[in-house]
Every structure is written in structure tokens, then in C-alpha cells.
């Protein structure tokens, strides 16, 4: 259990140093360090529940060795909102009943954030495309898609 190394990365705006094993995946490290919003529904890159923003891009972090995150900046769901005020995406999801069991929700919301950051005016097709790596067995995607469109509108008007 020796040969660990130091992983320096920025998580949710804070510079951090973690002790990691060479075979650790990024999802292992993040969960071990208390970022439980990173869910693991398959460990094989197929479900999207472990989605985080990696240098602003959505990735499934169960498929990345932790070492590859050296120097990167990562956003998890824990960093989406600060304090009691929710992010407009979170509010929009709750407003339309887009959260059911919630297991896929952190990943979906981060995919949604990446989309809206890139394209403040997404169409329904854009929203569906943005969720294409996020499986959800509960919602049929209808309400999450609606939530993304509402959130984008809200964020634009809020600016």
C-alpha cells in the first residue's frame, strides 16, 4: 500500500493536495475525499453518474486515472452552489420535478452547466444532446430537458 504520490488539483475553486495510488481512478479519489456527489453507477464509463467538469468539460471520471488530473481544475456538484442559495440549474430541476431518485442528478446538472456556459441559448435538441452521456432511469429526460431550458432562460435574464 506504499508508493502513493501527490496529486495537486483544484476542486471547486480550492487548491488541494491528495495522496493517491497509481491505480486510483479520479472517481475513487474524489469520493474518498468526501465529494460524495460524484456517483458511481457502473465504473465502466457507460452511465454518466460520475460526470464532473474537468477544466470546464464534462467527463466521466470513473474512466480517468487520478494521475491524469495533475494540475487540473475540477467542478463537482458540491461546488455548483455556495451557501444556502441554489444555482439556477438546481432550482429549475426542483421546480419542474426533474429530480426523482437523484442518483443521476449531479451528473446531469454538471452536463447542463457545461452546455449553458458554452451556449446560453440552447434549443431542446441541444439540451438532449448535452445529456447524451447521462443515463437516467427515473425521469424519461422530459423534465430534466425542460429544466435546462428554463435555467438557461433564467440565467440569461439574471445577467
Amino acid at each position: 500500500m506504499s508508493n502513493t504520490f501527490e496529486l495537486k488539483m483544484n476542486v471547486n475553486g480550492r487548491d488541494q493536495i491528495f495522496d493517491v495510488h497509481p491505480h486510483d481512478r479520479l472517481s475513487d479519489v474524489l469520493r474518498r475525499e468526501g465529494y460524495f456527489g460524484v456517483k458511481v453507477g457502473c465504473y465502466t464509463g457507460d452511465c454518466g453518474t460520475c460526470t464532473v467538469l474537468f477544466n470546464n468539460e464534462p467527463i466521466v471520471c470513473c474512466m480517468m486515472l487520478a494521475g491524469q488530473a495533475q494540475g487540473a481544475s475540477v467542478l463537482t456538484i458540491e461546488g455548483l452552489s455556495q451557501g444556502p442559495k441554489l444555482h439556477p440549474i438546481q432550482e429549475a430541476f426542483l421546480d419542474v420535478g426533474a429530480v426523482q431518485c437523484g442518483f443521476c442528478i449531479p451528473g446531469m446538472m454538471l452536463s447542463a452547466k457545461a452546455l449553458i456556459d458554452e451556449n446560453p441559448d440552447p434549443t431542446e435538441d441541444d439540451a438532449r444532446e448535452a445529456l447524451s452521456a447521462n443515463l437516467c432511469r427515473c425521469t424519461g429526460y422530459e423534465r430534466p430537458v425542460k429544466a435546462i431550458l428554463n435555467a438557461a432562460k433564467q440565467m440569461k435574464e439574471g445577467k
Binding site: F36, V38, K39, I77, F93, L94, C101, G102, I105
Partner: peptide, 21 residues
């Protein structure tokens, strides 16, 4: 009425709420 789920906030903020957490 369309009210937020009672567990909505914890789920939307990724709180450690599941068995494996």
C-alpha cells in the same frame, strides 16, 4: 400543488445521502 420534494435540496446538492456515502 407542485411543491419541491422534501429531499430535493439534499439530492440537488449531492449531499451524502445514499448507502455508499
Amino acid at each position: 400543488k407542485d411543491l419541491w420534494r422534501v429531499d430535493g435540496r439534499q439530492l440537488a446538492t449531492g449531499k451524502p445521502a445514499f448507502t455508499d456515502d
